[in-house]
Design a protein around this nucleic acid. Sequence first.
RNA 1: GUGGGCGUGGCCUAAUGGUUAAGGCUCCUGACUGUGGCUCAGGCAACUGUGGGUUCGAGUCCCACCGUCCACCCCA
Length: 422
Amino acid sequence: MPRFKRPTGTQDILPQEQPYWHHVVQTAERLALRYGYGRLDTPIFEETALFARGVGGATDIVEKEMYSFKDKGGHDLTLRPEFTAGVVRAYIENGMQKLPKPVKLYSIGPIFRYERPQAGRFRQFHQFNAEILGVADPLADLETMLLAWDLYEHLEFGGLSFQLNSTGCPTCRPGYIEALVAHYRAHYDQICDDCKRRLETNPLRVLDCKKAQCQPVIASAPRITEHLCDDCRLHFQTLRGYLDTLGKPYTINPRLVRGLDYYTKTVFEVWAEGIGAQAAVCGGGRYDGLVELLGGPPTPAVGFAAGIERVVMVMKAQGVAVPPLPAPTFFIAWLEKSARPLAVRLLVELRAADLGVQMAMGGSLRSQLRQANRRGARFVLIVGGDELARGEVACKNLLDGGQESFPLENLAERLRRLEAGG
RNA sequence: GUGGGCGUGGCCUAAUGGUUAAGGCUCCUGACUGUGGCUCAGGCAACUGUGGGUUCGAGUCCCACCGUCCACCCCA
């Protein structure tokens, strides 16, 4: 029988990894709630058409990265390749436009994209996602960015760089793309083959080409920030004004663009060093046209997603300490078979008193103590014939080796004090 | 989809083309029949990723496939 293996690009998140995950998720969730976001859980799969429409048919995600399938009822479904489309669908379907604005929603869960795995890239990965719907003012952009900032500050990250740009809107972006394409046509013999292709499919993408030969052409290319319409320019200036007032460091990156069609105005990413080529730990921006595109009322919106795997990679690369998960302090060892009923009763009673207790499932006393030690218990309660006769249990402290006897009366109370360090 | 590196017990590593694939870690047991950690002894555990080929003989050389890692593409 061949052994089963996990599918390419998926991971088992083992117990020793969980402290990192728990810390990230708990920190993100605590901050989101403090900021006034409500948690929204949407299905892991949606109608394929939702993503095709919402993410954009010309994007790589829709063209080649979706996990799509037909269920037994013949419905075309897709494992979500991002959160936003599903969140917007839920917003419309549940009538959230009737809620007081802004509507602030966060989500946490798995995301699926069929890609070749590499450092920091997986086929199933996890995102923390936050969206603000119903507010056009740059204050919403700011609020979104502040949450991202706060998250990384609470995780005690250093060396992050916040990249900011405006990608314009349907009013000004076509004009900019025209100017960009014209510039590239004028230097057509100097650019790489990939960029020649991008020029046809997704012209904005030429801006983040990494080939050396393209760098001079990029450097001399027109900048979108100089082609913004009045509305977009004012929006961008206002947002920058807020950030400057708060003293938040950021880098204006005219080459920062998005592969998803629905972005307008603000785009931002957070980059980390030391985790490989996939440095973006967080990406987001404004998408004022999406709600309407998906059949809802015209609704401005802004949001971001952070990749939890990449955040965990940064924590490890930077040696960030994470609190350990709670583990049982007490371990019950027993001797004669006659002591087992008492041991089992103790186990249940102490747990009912909210203490963390495990019990040996077998083995000699030596073996049981070894088990206790390996499992990280601090105290071992030894239940044997001698103790039984006296109505006591022995309690051995594994840290200093000391041992004393406790009567069964008020045992839970006594152990609680012991655990607290008394 | 494209390119490159790498595949030996659960993990790490060894084995000039030549017996029965070796060691360390982990795990289990015992020395210590009612006391963990340290030490010592022993034990469990691998058809060397899969399938072909070369050879008297392949973990080792060749080919293909698969997996994995890294990079491109693109993104979290």
